[in-house]
Design a protein around this nucleic acid. Structure first.
Ligand code: MN
Ligand code: MN
Ligand code: ZN
Ligand code: ZN
Lengths: 117, 117
DNA sequence: TAGTATATGCAAATCATTTGCAATTGCGAT
DNA sequence: ATCGCAATTGCAAATGATTTGCATATACTA
């Protein structure tokens, strides 16, 4: 019943905090090759359940994880595949959605397009 | 180079059109047990590439597909898992996002919450 | 109708994620 | 500080979704 603050968990969370952006399980494993992938999977699940990190689905590839300083959304460039992180006035968007009989807890906006650069 | 309008492809598209909502590959295969799952996968890929249908990621489970009469978004109830489909003023939302140096082509809003009812 | 490129089925491969289990370790209670 | 034990970890194997290779079947074109 008790959740332990193990060294491995600290390392995994550190890696996610340092990286500003999303990481796959493999990304994390590359930075921490000593830690088994299974342990990474289990730790990430734990962090997600305890809302320390967020899961993000951005395409077919597989789940991505990120430590979020503040809630934000994602835009993906169809050309270069780069992911842009941006904040938005969620309350205003929520009003525009006009969802009746539904208690909105979280809004996730995913934008597809291309970098103008 | 030529894309054939085969009977199997027609059947698969029909099933998606009739169903109002999302379907998994297994859902489709259950309705069309005679058609091999691989054929369903390949047909769906083709339809997506040709923008006849949309792919939707709504959770860990796996990819979902839907024939969209008109563009819309999705809300998922954390309790009953039911998916609600709703339209929104995308242009207004787009303005709220304030994405600089990015050519927005498509906005996908995924809402998490619970049914009030 | 014949010829050929495209589509299909079946088996096997691949990829991400999960599960079982034995060995290890963190931490609360002595 | 040491003990006892539940929580954690690693390794191997299982799962589940999706993809690939290849031989056969079929749609469309000429
Ligand atoms: Mn982000
Ligand atoms: Mn829909
Ligand atoms: Zn780009
Ligand atoms: Zn519900």
């Amino acid at each position: 019943m008790t959740i332990r603050l193990t060294d491995k968990r600290k390392q995994i969370l550190q890696v996610l905090k340092r990286q500003h952006g999303t990481m796959s399980v493999k990304d994390i494993h590359n930075k921490l090759p000593k830690i088994d992938q299974v342990t990474i999977y289990r730790s990430l699940d734990l962090f997600v359940k305890n809302k320390l990190i967020k899961e993000v689905h951005l395409g077919k590839e597989g789940m991505l994880y990120e430590y979020q300083t503040e809630p934000h959304h994602h835009a993906i460039c169809d050309d270069c595949r780069k992911v842009r992180h941006f904040t938005a006035p969620d309350e205003k968007i929520k009003k525009l959605l006009g969802l009746e009989d539904f208690e909105v807890e979280e809004i996730e906006v995913i934008v597809k397009g291309v970098c103008k650069k």
